[in-house]
Amino acid sequence: MTTPLILLPGDEVPSDYLPSSKSNPLKIGSGLRLLSQPSTKSKEPNHVLSATQAGILETDARRNTISLLSFPNRRYIPTTNDLIIAQVHHSSADFFHCMITPHTAQALLGQLSFEGATKKTRPMLKQGDIVYARVLSVGIGAGAEVELTCVNPATGKANPGGLGPLNGGMVFDLSTGMAARLLHASSSSADDDEPVDGLVVLSELGKKLEGFGGFELAVGRNGKVWVDCSNAEENAIKVTIAIGRCLQGTDEHNLNPADQKKLVTRTLRDMKLV
């Protein structure tokens, strides 16, 4: 379907908006909940999906995926398979207790939920450490605990996504809508000339900062982005702050591609990086 569809919490996804691929299983992204699925005898894709938040329905027929692109806001609702940036609050015998947002209950990250981790080789994370994790489960009902993992359950590896502790760098706050746009842009094909979701800020920063050794990003659906520019050596802090300001400025003012480029140029000039 080409007509954008806006859903509110509790709305069901119309059947004619569901991807119809029969070769791949339907992959459900953030913002949607599966209410029922077809039986093994059914030949029609009669999944019943419901929205858990307000947003624009987004489908990919080739990948057979469906998700909800949320509007810019600060509230994050954990959803299974979301990539998030969490901060360790404290540890217990079997878990690291992590903060996803300042206003939600702590999530549990198993101390062995890392690639190759054993009781002797598990990471010794302390309060304040940052991890890039995936939401493994969210439970059912009020007070249900959110469980995280830093490995792909199917392979036991940290990829895709580079899950695990994030060392160095800085974390910046964004709206959950901007975080979703960044994740969508990074997962989309780079073959198209048109910017994905109208975002050119990252590609523009990449061009301007190529001489400083580039940078690394980890984006969390909970409205956080980790930026590391350690290759910039003595300019690492300035480059990191410049990137954070560009991302936050694009988010706060909902800049179009032309204004994003102007923001990058102005910010790097102010930081004396160009």
Rank of each mutant, 00 (worst) to 15 (best):
S187L: 11
A61I: 11
A133I: 07
F71R: 14
P257I: 15
E145C: 03
V219W: 01
T250H: 06
L35R: 08
I56R: 15
N167G: 00
L112Q: 07
K262M: 12
S113Y: 05
G214T: 02
Q111S: 06
D173G: 10
T121E: 01
L247Q: 07
H253S: 15
V131K: 03
I6L: 14
L268D: 07
S20L: 08
H184Q: 14
T79E: 12
L205E: 15
A158G: 07
V227E: 06
L108Y: 03
H47W: 15
R245Y: 03
N167Q: 01
A179W: 13
P160K: 15
N81G: 04
A185G: 10
S21T: 13
G31V: 12
I77Q: 11
Q260D: 10
G213D: 03
I84W: 00
F215M: 04
S50K: 12
I56E: 15
S20V: 08
L202A: 02
T265L: 05
D60M: 14
S21H: 13
R62C: 06
D16T: 07
D82E: 08
G143V: 07
I140Y: 10
V274S: 05
A232I: 12
E194R: 09
Q87S: 03
S187M: 09
G211S: 14
D197P: 01
V131A: 03
I100C: 00
K262P: 04
T250Y: 06
L166T: 13
M178N: 04
V138L: 05
T2E: 12
S21P: 09
S67V: 05
T65W: 12
I56P: 10
A154H: 01
P72T: 10
M124F: 14
V264D: 09
T155D: 02
S186T: 15
M124E: 15
V264H: 10
P195G: 14
E145R: 00
M99L: 11
N222D: 08
I84N: 00
E44P: 00
I56V: 15
F95D: 03
R75G: 00
Q106V: 00
L136T: 07
E204F: 03
F212N: 01
G139M: 10
R221D: 00
R63G: 12
T118S: 13
N24E: 13
A51Q: 01
L199S: 06
V88P: 09
A232W: 08
L182E: 04
Q260W: 11
P153D: 09
V201C: 01
Y76T: 01
D270G: 09
Q53E: 13
G31M: 07
D197S: 09
S39R: 08
A218H: 05
A54M: 08
R134Q: 14
T2H: 10
A86T: 04
V201M: 03
M170C: 02
T176L: 09
D16E: 04
I130D: 00
V227H: 05
E145I: 01
H47M: 03
K261G: 15
E233C: 09
